[in-house]
Simulated assay, not measured.
Amino acid sequence: MVDVLNMDAIAIGILGFGGLGQAAARLLNQKQELRWVAAADRAGYAYDPKGLDTDVCIAATRERGSLGSVPEVGASAADSIAALRDRARVDGYFLALPNLPNTFMADVARGFIASGWRGVMVDALKRTSAVEQLLELRADLEAAGITYLTGCGATPGLLTAAAAIAAQSYAEIHNVCITFGVGIANWDAYRATIREDIAHMPGYNVERARTMSDAEVEALLDATDGVIKLENMEHADDIMLELAGVCPRDRVTVGGIVDTRNPQKPLSTNVQVTGRTFEGKISTHTFTLGDETSMAANVCGPAFGYLKAAVALHRRGWYGLHTAADIMPRFAR
């Protein structure tokens, strides 16, 4: 297998520069094997093959509204993703994009396919239906020379992979239950993520959440004391575990609590895998994330571990679509 460790730093691009994208940039700032060189937001992009300055890019975004305002390396663009894609030389992109509408991530993938671009793409998609749309592009991604890993955040992602490994103790999986707790100081830091969570609430859907004004979101959070409770979510952990042969999707459940006014987690994030061993015994494995790890750490860290693994696959000529339950991430130092 190609040893990525002995190669030059992997050039990384980030698509989307809201709360998650900015957290990803801060994480990359501490990596030696990964070099952050490109990013795009709605109104522009920044690109420097020598590496972008995290503090400068975040400051420009917060003070002037876009990466396009970053001195010397920024540019405004109506279609910033396409403009950056056509200019930047990167090994792989992390798609820190809100999947609003629900077709958005698949549309972005189609744009990369049509452009003739070759490389690695990794997302942190949530919804089963969004992953199903990407599954329809498997042959196109392979023919285009793109290695695409989907569902590579926390859930789906880290917890899905943990469930796939835990399942090996059993002859049959009875159920997989994922429960997450997220705490953030204020919803404004992760607007797109919170909107996607609202879309899972009873009486809401993706389109309604997408078109809500900030004032409407704030009114909803005021009514719930800033807490979003989610049950039986449409989460792609189910299809990913089904594709991996672990269990039928109807045996997978996902739910949790998001506190948008307190950085402390309202409950511990965990996955429980219950099954029957070959001796006929029923047991449950539980994998619990440390409460001190933030949503950003548990999403961005795995995403870049999967991106590093995807680069190794791509350099071996392995293209097409894979999920976090198919491939082991490689720790990026």
Rank of each mutant, 00 (worst) to 15 (best):
M1H: 15
V2L: 11
V2G: 00
D3I: 13
N6M: 12
N6C: 07
A9N: 03
G13S: 06
I14Y: 09
L27D: 08
N29R: 14
N29L: 11
Q30D: 09
A38F: 14
R42G: 11
Y47I: 06
D48P: 00
P49T: 13
T54S: 07
V56C: 10
L67H: 06
P71I: 10
V73L: 05
D79G: 00
S80G: 04
I81W: 01
A82S: 15
A82F: 05
A83V: 12
L95R: 01
L100A: 08
A106E: 04
A109S: 07
R110P: 00
G119N: 07
G119S: 08
V120C: 02
K126S: 05
R127S: 10
T128L: 05
T128W: 04
S129K: 09
L135E: 14
A143Y: 03
I146E: 00
L149M: 14
P156H: 05
G157I: 15
L159D: 02
T160V: 13
A161N: 15
N175C: 07
C177V: 14
G181Y: 09
A185M: 00
I194C: 02
E196K: 09
E196S: 07
H200S: 10
P202Y: 12
R208M: 12
R210F: 08
M212R: 10
A223H: 08
I228W: 02
H235K: 01
D238P: 00
M240K: 01
L243C: 07
C247Y: 09
V254W: 03
V254N: 01
G255W: 13
V258G: 01
V258Q: 02
D259L: 09
K265T: 06
T274Q: 06
G275A: 04
G280L: 06
S283K: 07
L289T: 09
G290S: 14
G290A: 14
D291S: 12
T293L: 15
T293E: 10
S294G: 03
V299H: 05
P302N: 05
Y306H: 15
L307H: 03
A310T: 13
L313K: 08
G320P: 07
T323F: 07
D326M: 13
